[in-house]
Simulated assay, not measured.
Amino acid sequence: MTTITQTAPAVAASSRPGAGAALRQTMTLAWRSMVQIKHNPMELLDLSVQPIMFLLLFTYVFGGAIAGSTGDYLQFALPGLVAQNMLFASMTTAVGLNVDIAKGVFDRLRSLPISRSAPLAGRIVADTLKQVWAFALFLGLGLVLGFRVHTGIAGVLGALALLLAFALAMSWTAVLVGVTAASMEKVQILMFSLMMPITFTSNAFVATDTMPSWLQKWVEVNPVSHLADAVRGLLGGGPVASDATISLLWAAGIAVVVAPLAVRAFRNRI
């Protein structure tokens, strides 16, 4: 009797998704993250409580002492508060990423036939878009309290675009912290330790010339100072080009330096 041995055909390794497929998968996962807000409103509440609390606190507690008038201080401080909130909101990216890694979410997504970068990129896109809500809340409450926009809708959209560009760059810092920190608590400590000094040693809340001369030198190069001044110009009128350009250069520099480190750390962790 002749034995016939049948060899199973080799399974060809699946090719990586192309750029178009990776983009579609990224947007699908970003949309999934946005839709989750409907089932977990606390995610949006995190971006709502801090803007309201900070705007009321700084305006009515510090405004009179710093500017002599709460109305004058609101006109000066609101753009700085928007910039500060944008930086602090990046903590949600770091914390959320760390929690997803700990729970094995990325391990499950990795088993799917999708681009390896799509889950990370989807979270970054979703968390950046969530900041539109915080900006709208800041501006809406500011208008109720007496803040006035003197540049029309074009200025508002320009300020939002600049803030989102800077937020997108800063999200890579959040990714780096989120994937390297051992726990959610350490993520919060590291992000807070980074964001607090850089925002409070800027001109976001007080004019530069009121500070000691040695501190003014740092304030004048602090990226948050340029971002706050650019947003002031875009919302209230005044010079914009120089501060906006410097802010975008800072954002590009942060992304160029930190993004490769964040991607490498992410690949090593996942």
Rank of each mutant, 00 (worst) to 15 (best):
V219E: 05
F138A: 05
S202G: 10
A182L: 12
K217P: 01
A241S: 14
M170Y: 14
M211I: 05
L194A: 15
P239I: 03
D229I: 07
L160P: 09
T199C: 12
L137D: 09
L227F: 14
G238S: 05
L176D: 09
V177A: 12
L143D: 01
F205A: 10
D209C: 00
A167T: 14
L215V: 13
V187I: 11
L163W: 05
D209P: 01
L160C: 08
V240Q: 03
M184F: 02
L234V: 10
S242K: 11
L249I: 14
V149W: 06
A230R: 03
N222T: 04
E185Q: 08
S225M: 12
T151N: 00
G146M: 07
A241W: 15
W250D: 11
Q188P: 00
A169V: 04
E220D: 07
L248Y: 02
A159W: 04
L139D: 02
V144G: 04
S242H: 14
A174L: 11
V144H: 02
T210A: 05
N203I: 13
G140L: 09
G152W: 11
P212L: 13
L248H: 02
T245F: 13
K186A: 14
D209W: 06
A181S: 15
A169F: 09
A167K: 14
L163E: 04
F205T: 06
F166T: 07
G155R: 08
L143T: 02
L145M: 15
A244R: 09
L143H: 03
S171C: 05
V187Q: 09
V144Y: 07
I153P: 03
S247E: 06
A154V: 15
D209R: 03
L235W: 08
G178W: 07
V224W: 13
N203S: 15
H226N: 05
G237K: 02
G236W: 10
M170W: 14
A167R: 14
M195F: 02
G237R: 02
P212K: 10
